[in-house]
Design a protein around this nucleic acid. Structure first.
Lengths: 364, 364
DNA sequence: GTGAAAGCGCTAACAA
DNA sequence: TTGTTAGCGCTTTCAC
C-alpha cells in the first residue's frame, strides 16, 4: 500500500536499499538518465521503487528543475455549460501525461484574466491554455513576454493565426450546415440574431452566415445581440415581433440567444416551428429537453479540450513545428425547433435525426 | 509590473536591497515572524516586496515546510451539471485565501476515487474535499489513515456524522416542501420514482418522502431507479403507464429522473401537468426551459461549495472544534410541470412563482 | 531584534 | 557506469 503522506519513500531510501548513491537512483528513475546506467540495475531500481510506492516529490523537483508538471487553464466560468466538457477533455489528456491542471476563471474580464495569469505564473505552471473572450487581448501578449507555452482555445484573437497555437471550432462549417438545413426545409428569408462581433465566434458566425446565405440563394436580415444571453435573444425576438418581417426562420448566435427568442415567441403565441423555425449553436446539454427540442450545431467540446492539451504537451517538449491552427468540425443536430417553411415549397421533408433517449450523465 | 516568470524577485534580492539578512526578510513577510522584528522595518520590507512584485516560491516553501497551500477536490464528473457551481463555490473561497484547488474525477468509481486521492496526496495537498458517491466508502478511511484534513461534500457516508466534517443539502426539507406543494394542489396519491438507495441522497429523499406523505395525510407508492438517470426515470414512467395507478403526481429522485419520465409521458400522450404532475430535485440549470418548465427543488450548490471550503480552511489551521455537520436549505421552485390534481379539490390555487426571464450565464 | 547556518528532496555538472 | 558535490529558495533553529 502506498503511504503517500505519512512517510513518503525518498530517493535516499532506495539508494540505501541498493547500496548505491542517490544520483544513481535518480538516473534510474528519470527517462533521460536511464540510458547512462546499467540496464539491469536500472530495471531493479525501478521495480523496487514501484513496489515501495515511491512518488517523486513534486516540490523538490520543481525547485531544482524549474519544471513543475503543472499547467494552467483560464476559462471565463465553469458554470457556462460549454466549459465542463472542454475542461474534462483537457484534464483527461493531462492526467494521462501525469500533469496536473489548475483552473482559473476570468469572468470574461480582461483585468481578472490578467490577474489569474499572474497567479498561475507565480505558481510556476509549465504551460497555459487560454480561452480568451475578446478579439483584442493584451493578456496574450503578456503571456508571450513571459515566455510561457501557450495554446488558445475555442476563442481566438484577431491576427493570432500563425502567432500562437489555436484550437477552434469550425464556425463557418456549422453555419453552412445550418443554412443548408433551413434551405432544404424551404426557408427563403431568415433573420440572424447574431452574437457580439467583438468575440471571435460572433464575428465568424455572422460572416459565414452572410456568405452562405448568398451561396444558397437566400436573403437575411440581422439583429445584433450585445451578449450571448437569453435576455439579448429575447430582445431581438421582441423586435422581430414588432417588425413583423416576412422571414420564416431565425439563426441564433448561440443556444442561449435561441432559447431566449423561443420563450418570447411562445409567450406571444407564435408557434415554433410552425410559424417560425429557430436554430441554435453550441449543442448545449439538455437542449433536446427544451420546448421544442432545439435544433442546434453540436460542437465537439471534449475533443477541443483534448486537442489543445495535446498541442500544449508537444509545445512544452519543444516540438516546435511552428504555431498550429486546428479546426474541429461541428455537426448540426436537427430537432423540432426547425421545420418546413410555412407555405413554402419543401425540397426535402424534415426527418427526425435524433431519437428520444440518449445516454445521459448521472446526477445526484 | 510583475515579472513572475522571467526573473522572479527572491528573498535574497530584498535582503540585499535593505542590507539585512534573508532571515529578516522572511520574518517580515510571514505572519508569525513579523512580531519578532521591528515593526517599522517589517512594514518597509513588506511595502518594497509588494512594489517589486515579490511572489514567494511555492516550491521552495513547499519543500521546506511541507505545506503547499493546495487543496484537492474529488467529484464524480464536472460534466454533471450540479458540480460546476459547487466547484466554483469552493474555488471562490480558496482563491480568496490564496490557496490553489486541484480537481479530480472519480466517475463514481471507488477504484478511480482511490487512485485520485493517492495522486493528490502525492502532490502534497494540504486538504481534501470529497464528494463521495456511496454510503460505504473505504476511500474515506484511507484519507483518515493518511491524516489529511477532510471535508465531505454533498454526498456523505453512513455513520459519518460526528466523524468527519460534512456539508450537505437538507434533503428532508426539500422533500417536505415538495409534499406540501403537491398536497396544496389537491394531490392525494403520489408515486416516488426514488433514486438509488445506496447513495445518501436516494436514501434520505425516500425516507423523508415516506415520513412527510404520512404527515400530510397522503398515500405513496414507489418505483426504484437504479441510477439518477433519464433512462431510469423513463423506465419507471413506462411501468407507471402500464400499471395505470390512481396516483396524480410523481416525485422524482432528481431532475434527470423527472425529465426522463416527462419525456415518456409526453410520448404516450399523457399530459403534464393536466393528467399527472411531476416534481424534480436539484434545480439544474435551464430546467425552466424544459417542456413543461420543471418544478424542482433548487439546491444552493455554490454555497455548499463555499461552506465546505470554509470548513476545510478552518480545519487546516487546526481550529478543531470537532467534526461539523452543516445542512443548507433548498427551496422548491414551482413551475409548470406541477398543477392541480385532476378532479381533486384544491386547497390553494397554484401560483406562478417564477417569471419568465432570469439573469443567465453567458455562453460563447 | 537580527544573523548564520543547516537542510527540505532532488538533479546535474563534474570527477573518477 | 557511478559517486561527489553543490545548490534550487525558503524557513527555522540556535546563537548573539
Amino acid at each position: 500500500m502506498v503511504l503517500a503522506r505519512k512517510d513518503p519513500v525518498r530517493i535516499k531510501d532506495l539508494a540505501e536499499h541498493f547500496g548505491v548513491s542517490p544520483s544513481t537512483v535518480s538516473r534510474a528513475l528519470s527517462p533521460k538518465g536511464r540510458s547512462l546506467i546499467s540496464a539491469d540495475l536500472a530495471a531493479r531500481i525501478r521495480a523496487k521503487a514501484e513496489e515501495m510506492g515511491y512518488v517523486g516529490d513534486v516540490y523538490a523537483t520543481g525547485l531544482r528543475t524549474g519544471r513543475t508538471r503543472t499547467v494552467g487553464v483560464i476559462i471565463p466560468d465553469i458554470q457556462n455549460p460549454i466549459f465542463p466538457p472542454i475542461v474534462r477533455g483537457i484534464q483527461n489528456r493531462m492526467d494521462e501525461a501525469g500533469l496536473v491542471t489548475l483552473i482559473a476563471y476570468s469572468d470574461n474580464r480582461i483585468d481578472l484574466a490578467r490577474r489569474e495569469v499572474e497567479r498561475l505564473l507565480g505558481r510556476r505552471v509549465d504551460g497555459l491554455i487560454y480561452a480568451s473572450a475578446f478579439l483584442e487581448d493584451p493578456v496574450i501578449d503578456f503571456c508571450r513576454e513571459q515566455g510561457v507555452s501557450l495554446v488558445l482555445l475555442n476563442r481566438s484573437v484577431r491576427g493570432a493565426r500563425g502567432l500562437y497555437h489555436e484550437v477552434l471550432n469550425d464556425e463557418a462549417e456549422g453555419i453552412r450546415q445550418t443554412v443548408a438545413h433551413l434551405a432544404s426545409l424551404g426557408h427563403r428569408r431568415i433573420v440572424h440574431f447574431n452574437g457580439p462581433v467583438d468575440v471571435l465566434q460572433g464575428l465568424e458566425r455572422r460572416e459565414a452566415l452572410r456568405r452562405y446565405v448568398r451561396e444558397y440563394g437566400l436573403e437575411a436580415e440581422e439583429c445584433e445581440c450585445t451578449a450571448f444571453s437569453r435576455e439579448e435573444g429575447a430582445r431581438c425576438a421582441r423586435q422581430f415581433l414588432s417588425a413583423r418581417p416576412s422571414a420564416t426562420a431565425i439563426v441564433a448566435g448561440n443556444d442561449l440567444i435561441a432559447i431566449g427568442a423561443v420563450q418570447v415567441f411562445k409567450e406571444a403565441g407564435l408557434r415554433v416551428p410552425d410559424q417560425v423555425s429557430v436554430v441554435g449553436f453550441n449543442g448545449m446539454p439538455f437542449s433536446e429537453m427544451f420546448d421544442p427540442p432545439l435544433t442546434t450545431v453540436a460542437i465537439p467540446h471534449v475533443q477541443l479540450g483534448a486537442r489543445a492539451a495535446e498541442i500544449l504537451l508537444g509545445e512544452m517538449q519543444g516540438e516546435s513545428e511552428g504555431p498550429l491552427t486546428v479546426k474541429l468540425e461541428p455537426v448540426l443536430v436537427a430537432r423540432r425547433s426547425s421545420g418546413p417553411a410555412p407555405g413554402g415549397a419543401v425540397d426535402d421533408p424534415p426527418r427526425a435525426t435524433e431519437t428520444s433517449l440518449k445516454p445521459s450523465i448521472p446526477s445526484s
